[in-house]
Write a protein that binds this DNA or RNA. Sequence first.
DNA 1: TAAAGCAATTTATGCTAATAAATATAATAA
DNA 2: TTATTATATTTATTAGCATAAATTGCTTTA
Lengths: 256, 256
Amino acid sequence: MKDQNLRIPKRVKRSDQIVDSVKRWVALNRMQPGDRLPNERELMEQFECSKGTVREALKSLEVQGLVSIRTGPNGGAVLARVPYGKASELLRNFLHFEQPSGPEIYALRTLVEPEIAALATPRLTDEDLATLRELVARCEVDPVTFDERIDQRIAELDFHVLLAQRCGNAMLSFIGRFVNDMIRDLVIFKKSALPEQREFSCANLGFHKQLLEAFEQKDAQASRHLMKEHMLSAEHFNRELEGQLNQHFLGGDPRP
Amino acid sequence: MKDQNLRIPKRVKRSDQIVDSVKRWVALNRMQPGDRLPNERELMEQFECSKGTVREALKSLEVQGLVSIRTGPNGGAVLARVPYGKASELLRNFLHFEQPSGPEIYALRTLVEPEIAALATPRLTDEDLATLRELVARCEVDPVTFDERIDQRIAELDFHVLLAQRCGNAMLSFIGRFVNDMIRDLVIFKKSALPEQREFSCANLGFHKQLLEAFEQKDAQASRHLMKEHMLSAEHFNRELEGQLNQHFLGGDPRP
DNA sequence: TAAAGCAATTTATGCTAATAAATATAATAA
DNA sequence: TTATTATATTTATTAGCATAAATTGCTTTA
């Protein structure tokens, strides 16, 4: 079979030209989220093309998360901030065929989380600290049902996500949220049932409690150090759990 | 003005349903890049909708980089790997309104590059090493014209990009490429003209030469350590250059 | 035989017109 | 005042038709 992906289309499509024009126009006019684009009819006239072509261009902008489109009066295409979920989804697509392994994900996490913790420490508000305390509290009760175990894993991860959201570095923040989302998908429904998970969660709880203290005392260095230890511990436990999983599946591919 | 972004549309659009269906179908059937999707007519029949709706769905998949569409026999929508440039562009959109600062970008770089260097070290082929040597050689001649200076900065960054491409961890690889792309855009046309840039480039050249030795000896630990020093040095120089830039612009916003 | 050119086929691309659905605003009725 | 209804605006979807692009295979030519 011939490789069909390397072919370069001869002529740029009309809708893509419109997308580029709109993007330039938005950048030149320093337009802000909430500002409205012309409606479909006006765009048709402005670009001298049909409705279908305009709609393809708008669809493209919508998929990229750059505009949000609604029907009705005062509807139409409105400039938007790209929501985290959108960017996250698109990066997932990129990784679809690479399927990062558990150890790879945890390795990245170990790199970024200590810095995130350090950066977030002086930026956490009292409200943030209260939220963190609540998340820790949710992990302190002894889980009975499977749903309770799941809820505790979510709470553990939300602890890290909140820190990422507060670290003040947009890229680091994104990576922090993303890597914890990856772990959520990777871990929750696969390993939470294993008996070894219990020991893992206890260790996590201990680290989170210590981290909370460091946050309350605004001790960024302690935060960084504790988080590093926490991450190394998590990497260790993950390796153990993956080993157990492989045994369960009797040598089959652990991540089919 | 009312906030129009938080509104949730009543009914999911038909084209988005189709996108989801196709995605599920692709995942379920373990379809690979190069595999063809049904053509527009077949999709119309399968989803019992009009051509316009199918086209919007395909456009969505195309914008996400999941398919590549061509006309002609054996054309149509073909499953594709999301190219790096696509994922990168979409993440840039996400960061558009946050505009990461130079120090933020360099901070992330300092976090990831040492690990990338260590991971890449045992994976570099002889060809890779030759390429790296060539990139270093391009930086050794004394730059005369502005274009030559630009070319050397590109070569410096390509050195890091190649390492990222070889590190074997898809996420880390993406972040490494992305952060160097950010630096490319941030730095090239703004700071390369400053006299202080020359000293910066000499320091970089020195580190790259030492790194090359570590790569040739397959010494991952040395690579990691050297890269860490290299990054700390780069962060330092960047701060200096930003200071100089601020002086040049007489207190105005250095990144308008 | 091999290369170049031509035609047929397949496929997306683009246009028009008409109708349906969603929603904000204004008018109306309780 | 409050709830309901009407109406205007805008996107969403449909249908059909014409056009353009690209590949395949055939034919001609050297």
